[in-house]
């Protein structure tokens, strides 16, 4: 599943949000989008998902313009995973996941045996099979996020779009959710996600797209893109970027708070 965004420009009420954004996502790629609040990450996602019309430029899936694709066809190719949220009605985890299979059944019918099997496999896959009959609103935020990923998996789309999947999750859940996402990419899913944590971007993505003022500021492998300058430009914070374990990890250390010229003791790092 390859996605191409060409010269995408979009604005709400004349106020431009996205300006001339172009990038491509190759099959099996895990792309992370970085950018400050309000830069247009969610707007970009809404365009890609076909939820916003009236943009300039072109978005293609497998070289087909998404404006020419119907709602059902889109859902068969792309699944959206929102931030872990509450629903007004408390569905069981199983029912919530089963809803993802709706695109496979006709308008007047409900998911059948095959779909129930898919839902169970997806719960198993995300390691939350024991939550099957719990209420979706009664489990933790991290668990809800995993449920939403399972729901996207049963949709059987090859491309997943995640809007800040780790927002509001504790540290452990962030790592667990991101690891699952990375595994999915290795299994052949094409994934686009947005995040606010540059360190995690470095750990958990194949490529990073940085947005600044509605434009693409940087696009490339995390090793090329992640720099002190990037953090300064995107977030206006002075940091020192430290590379660890032979550049497997990079961390940003904010200057001014941490005395970065202080001699480091190796023993403390271990």
């Amino acid at each position: 599943m390859s996605l191409k965004v060409k010269n995408l420009t979009f604005g709400y009420d004349e106020r431009p949000v996205l300006k001339d954004v172009s990038f491509a996502v190759e099959e099996n790629e895990l792309l992370s989008i970085l950018g400050p609040n309000g830069v247009g990450k969610s707007t970009l996602f809404r365009c890609i998902l076909g939820l916003l019309q009236g943009y300039e430029g072109e978005i293609t899936l497998h070289n087909r313009d998404i404006r020419k694709m119907g709602i059902r066809e889109m859902a068969k190719h792309v699944a959206y995973i929102p931030q872990s949220h509450y629903t007004p009605f408390n569905y069981s985890v199983f029912e919530m996941v089963l809803m993802g299979t709706t695109v496979q059944v006709s308008a007047f019918s409900k998911p059948g045996k095959r779909q129930a099997g898919l839902a169970e496999a997806a719960l198993e896959r995300m390691g939350i099979a024991d939550l099957k009959y719990r209420g979706y609103t009664q489990i933790s935020g991290g668990e809800r996020q995993l449920v939403l990923i399972a729901r996207a998996l049963v949709q059987e789309a090859r491309m997943l779009i995640l809007d800040e999947p780790t927002a509001n999750l504790d540290y452990g859940n962030q790592i667990r959710v991101l690891s699952q996402i990375k595994t999915l990419a290795r299994e052949g899913y094409t994934i686009v996600q947005s995040t606010h944590n540059p360190d995690q971007t470095f750990l958990f993505s194949d490529r990073v797209l940085a947005l600044k003022d509605g434009r693409v500021f940087a696009d490339g492998p995390p090793g090329q893109v992640y720099s002190e300058k990037l953090i300064k430009v995107l977030y206006g914070v002075d940091v020192e970027v430290q590379s660890l374990y032979g550049d497997q990890v990079r961390v940003s250390i904010p200057k001014g708070i941490v005395q970065t010229d202080y001699p480091r003791k190796k023993a403390l790092l271990n």
């Binding site: 998902l49 709602i71 859902a75 699944a79 959206y80 949709q155």
Partner: peptide, 8 residues
């Protein structure tokens, strides 16, 4: 929005 991305 969610309904639409799920094909409804």
């Amino acid at each position: 929005d969610e309904a639409k991305t799920m094909g409804v």
